[in-house]
Amino acid sequence: MTVAVVAAALAVLTACGPQDTGADPKAPGTPPTTSAGPTPTATPSPLPTTAPPTTPVPTTPVRTPVPTPVPTTTAPSTPPVAPALMSVGSSSARVRELQARLGQLGFFSRTPTGYYGTVTQHAVRDFQERHGLADAAGTGSVSPTTWARLKSLTRQPTHQEMYPAPPAKAADTLDPRCLTGHAMCVSKTTRTLSWVVDGKVLASMDVRFGSQYTPTREGLFHVTFKSRDHVSTLYDTPMPYAMFFSGGEAVHYSADFAARGYAGASHGCVNVRDRAAIASLFDQVHVGDKVVVHW
């Protein structure tokens, strides 16, 4: 065997690596090897290097609705009505001045009393109507406008005009029991109380009596005790400046009499509606002084 043959045999024995995947076409059980052509490879589409221009989509701006202001309806302002300075039931020194000023113009013909009753009310109404000042309600009250107009047309009353001395009554018109000493002489006929000292009338004021169910007793009495701020324990009502003369009956100030006049009645007492007058009388009367209630 030559060297060339031995080399060839050795080459065959050593060529057994896994790199040979093909089988012998003639070996039994070995499927024939099909020679496949090259597998086609898909060619990728070239990517654009520059993005196409974008057409701007027109956008509608969002508008926030502005609320329409609702017109506010303001009611026409009504000027406040000034409170009355004086009206029916008032009792004061200013009422005396009012009456005196009305008297200067001929609207009030009586002596000033300081009490605002129906006579004063009618006088004020006449003055207001004469000068176009009548209030809508027709109450006859004195408004600031009425008072200012009246003062502009009159002068300041004197003290004597506002506090005139009461007309002296003739001695024969007084109850004889009132002619001596100190006496509160109360007449149911004239509905007045006269303060009489030694037969001379020093003061006089309107009074009111009890009803037919609680009449004021008549006769000669004497003041038993005085109580400036008295309150009735029976009726629980104030009885200022009370001067008792017969049991529970007394001469005293009555706010009800001042407000309602003779529309009401007492429970037997002698009511006075002029507070200033009864306050002055209270300071002059003493326990033991006479009280004469008569017709």
Rank of each mutant, 00 (worst) to 15 (best):
Y163N: 15
Q160H: 06
P40W: 12
M162I: 07
V272A: 13
H182C: 02
P44T: 04
L13T: 11
S266E: 07
T14F: 13
P56H: 14
G199T: 12
Y253L: 07
A255E: 12
P61T: 09
I278A: 01
L193T: 00
T21E: 11
W147Q: 03
L98C: 05
L234N: 09
V292T: 03
V3M: 09
H286R: 15
G22N: 11
M162R: 11
E97V: 09
P28E: 11
V231C: 08
S204L: 04
Q121A: 03
V292S: 00
T55Y: 05
A148V: 04
R228E: 14
R217L: 08
K290G: 05
S87G: 11
H252F: 10
E249V: 07
P65L: 02
M239L: 14
G247A: 13
V142H: 11
M86N: 01
S194E: 10
S91K: 02
A75F: 11
G132H: 13
V201W: 05
Y241V: 03
T189Y: 02
T21G: 11
H182T: 15
T64H: 04
P157K: 01
Q99W: 01
G29N: 15
V270P: 08
D236S: 13
K188T: 15
A171R: 15
G199R: 09
T59Q: 03
R149G: 01
R149L: 10
A255V: 02
C185V: 05
S90T: 10
G268Y: 00
A134S: 15
P164F: 06
T237P: 00
L220A: 15
A36I: 06
A100S: 13
A277G: 11
P76H: 03
E161A: 15
V293A: 06
V293F: 07
G248A: 13
W195K: 05
G247K: 10
L85T: 04
F107E: 04
G132S: 09
V6Y: 14
G17H: 06
L85H: 05
P176T: 11
E218S: 15
T146P: 04
A171Q: 12
F209D: 05
V81P: 00
R208V: 00
T173K: 09
M86E: 05
S211F: 12
G117E: 08
V119Q: 11
T139R: 15
M243P: 11
R96S: 11
L150G: 10
A82Y: 07
A23V: 07
L98M: 04
H131I: 04
A276K: 12
K188I: 02
V270S: 03
V66T: 14
F209S: 06
S211I: 08
T233W: 09
V207F: 07
E97F: 02
P58I: 07
A137F: 08
K226Y: 08
T214L: 13
Y116D: 00
